[in-house]
Amino acid sequence: MIEAAMIWNEPNNKSHWDPELDPDWSRFAETAIAAGRAIREAHPTLPRVLGGMSPIDPAFIRNMQAKGVLDQVDAVAVHGFPLDWNLWPIHDWPAKLAEIRAVTDKPLWVSEVGVSSFGAEEVQEWGLARTAALLKGRAERIHWYSLHDLPRSWGATTRHKEAEGSSYYRHFYMGLVREDGGRKPAFAEFARHTPDLGLCQWFHFEDHRLAQSVALMKELGVTYLRTGLSWADYYRPDALAWFDRQMEALRDFRVTVTFCFTPEHKGPGRHHTSPPDDPAEFGGFCAEMVRRYA
């Protein structure tokens, strides 16, 4: 069921990895190396992808190279949201990819790219078409974020100030489908770009949208998908039953699974962004999931 395994999500973004606990990413490097080795031991050929950078930063890749992380992954990934959060214009996409290719010869994925409909749904529709024109043929995978708007009741957290590009009120409007199930104009536009474009859709624990998502993705012609299995969720009651249900529902797609989020009791920060106390435990989780689903 798994096409590839992604190690963490946005490790250079302080909303996903705590830089106060790991200012030079040494502990992240230990964690990523442990995961990469464990995944390889569990599956000899499954591609391993370094979690998408946000912001896109060649210095981060050079740091990971120096710390040995790139020896344990087969591809690197970037995330970009120039119409919402990033402080660069949408037409800079080719230049941003070139910045990363200048510092590594690893295959390059765009594992999240999106445009919110916060200002206007027509802006999202235009942004999707322009993004597709700029990225198709320039990256091995292009995952549009996302299928669904984030329900307002779920909340979204950030450690960033708005001046740093957080604007997280926009996070609730990134979907092709509104919270009430209505389709935005970008829904039809996206269908014009499949199967070249895939989706990134995170499913919350026991997400009620799972079956609907599968039907919508098949209608859109989606063939590949990025989602996540949370190490923190692994410690919830009936976690494996939910993981099984999620992965079974997605079996008709080529799935990249992102492994991330530290359980509160497994890291010094007592938060999902904390480095784990023992990187080998995270590696063990990754290996178990790979054996179970790949």
Rank of each mutant, 00 (worst) to 15 (best):
P94R: 09
D196G: 05
I100L: 14
D71H: 14
E122P: 00
A95S: 13
F81G: 07
A186S: 14
S15V: 04
P151D: 04
V255N: 04
L83H: 02
E30H: 11
S54M: 09
E164F: 08
L199P: 07
E30G: 09
D196L: 03
S167C: 13
V110H: 09
D92L: 12
E99Y: 05
V123C: 03
I2Q: 10
W93K: 00
V73C: 06
V222E: 04
A38W: 00
R141W: 05
V73H: 04
R183V: 07
V222Y: 02
A95G: 09
L216T: 07
S167W: 14
I61K: 09
D244P: 06
L70C: 07
S274Y: 09
G284W: 04
I90Q: 08
L150A: 03
L197I: 11
N13E: 04
S274I: 03
T256R: 01
Y234L: 06
A59E: 15
E189F: 01
N86G: 08
F81T: 01
E112S: 14
Y235T: 07
G221L: 00
S146Q: 13
P151F: 01
A215I: 00
E162V: 14
D24E: 13
P275A: 09
Q212I: 00
A249S: 15
P195V: 07
D22K: 11
A294Q: 09
R130N: 14
P107F: 11
E248I: 02
R40P: 05
C200S: 14
K218C: 01
G51M: 03
G182T: 15
G284T: 11
W109G: 07
P11K: 02
D278P: 02
G36F: 03
W231E: 11
A38Q: 05
A129D: 11
K184H: 14
L87E: 12
R27M: 09
S54T: 13
P107M: 10
F203E: 05
E164T: 03
R254D: 15
M247S: 13
G283L: 02
A215S: 10
A280T: 11
S230H: 04
T262F: 00
Q65R: 15
T104E: 04
R62W: 04
E10L: 05
H148R: 15
H272Y: 15
I56H: 09
N9S: 13
K184G: 11
V115N: 02
Y145S: 09
A29P: 05
A239F: 01
R254I: 00
P279C: 13
L87P: 12
H204N: 08
L46P: 07
V78S: 04
A287C: 10
W202F: 09
W93S: 01
N12A: 08
G269Y: 06
E281Y: 07
A75W: 01
W88C: 05
I61E: 11
P276D: 08
E179S: 01
H272N: 11
D105V: 09
M247I: 02
D233P: 02
W109K: 02
T31L: 13
Y169E: 15
R183L: 15
T31I: 00
Y168I: 12
T158D: 07
M64Q: 15
I56L: 11
D18G: 03
E219N: 02
A59R: 12
L197Q: 11
L199K: 06
A249K: 04
F118L: 12
D244V: 03
G165L: 01
V290N: 07
P55T: 04
R130T: 13
F259I: 11
F203Y: 14
R170T: 03
